[in-house]
């Protein structure tokens, strides 16, 4: 397909599989992509979040290989820190420090910058986002959308080459979504955006459809998303809620 000629794609999965206690979460994923904006769409429980964690190097694949920019992210954590960043669904789960500047400086410190360098760089990032006034703001006083933005700034400060978004907009109102989307568009980083909502991925260069741990379709957003939406509406007419997993 599109990226076959690329000798070293930005994102490369070869027969990737992941199991927990014998239960298959993902299997046989093969995907090569160097698109700037990559989308992954699928239902709840299709394995999207697991894929996000694998791509961030937080989980170790059960089989197959996974490389981001040529790096095995779960094995080489140091290189991974300079390569991938991940934004989780719930900022409450991501923010470690009580104040904005400390939160942004944390990742920079882990990348080996000195305390003063990290603090200065955090201020620079805040200024870049026009949020210099947020420096000392306590996290607890921020709105949900503002917390999302802090997470985004903290991850982008580390200058990853790939930013993984795991349903970052779930539960946000339309204006907040649009505003955060604008910040994402402005950053030049490659995006891999995971969502159950096709509206989030409209206009993406490439969309991969994940269903029950397998890739069922890949292609341009305007080809894959209408098929996905049609199938979701069809499944909405069924009653698979009744099924318990084993």
């Amino acid at each position: 397909m599109h990226a076959t000629a690329d000798p070293r794609p930005a994102v490369q999965l070869e027969d990737l599989g992941y199991e927990v206690a014998g239960r298959v979460i993902l299997s046989g994923l093969t995907l090569r992509s160097s698109a700037r904006r990559i989308g992954v769409v699928g239902r709840n429980g299709s394995g999207k979040s697991t894929l996000a964690r694998l791509l961030a190097g937080l989980l170790v694949p059960s089989r197959g290989t996974l490389r981001v920019e040529g790096i095995e992210v779960h094995a080489d954590r140091k290189a991974a820190l300079a390569t991938v960043g991940i934004l989780f669904q719930n900022p409450e789960h991501q923010i470690i420090f009580p104040r904005v500047q400390e939160e942004i400086a944390f990742g920079l410190r882990q990348q080996g910058r000195s305390k003063s360098e990290a603090a200065a760089e955090a201020l620079r990032v805040l200024a870049l986002f026009d949020k210099a006034g947020w420096k000392d703001a306590p996290i607890q006083s921020l709105s949900q959308g503002q917390k999302h933005l802090v997470c985004m700034m903290a991850v982008l400060a580390m200058r990853p080459r790939l930013l993984i978004l795991d349903e970052p907009f779930a539960g946000l109102d339309i204006p907040t979504k649009m505003q955060l989307g604008r910040y994402l568009d402005r950053c030049a980083t490659r995006l891999l955006h995971i969502s159950h909502d096709p509206a989030d991925l409209r206009g993406y260069d490439e969309v991969h459809w994940l269903d029950r741990g397998r890739l069922v379709a890949s292609g341009a957003a305007d080809l894959v998303l209408p098929r996905f939406t049609a199938d979701m509406i069809r499944q909405g007419g069924l009653d698979d809620l009744s099924q318990l997993s084993d």
Binding site: L81, F88, G107, Q110
Partner: peptide, 10 residues
């Protein structure tokens, strides 16, 4: 979750 977030940023 926090452990994961810590690991994600080193």
């Amino acid at each position: 979750h926090v452990a994961e977030a810590l690991r994600a940023r080193g």
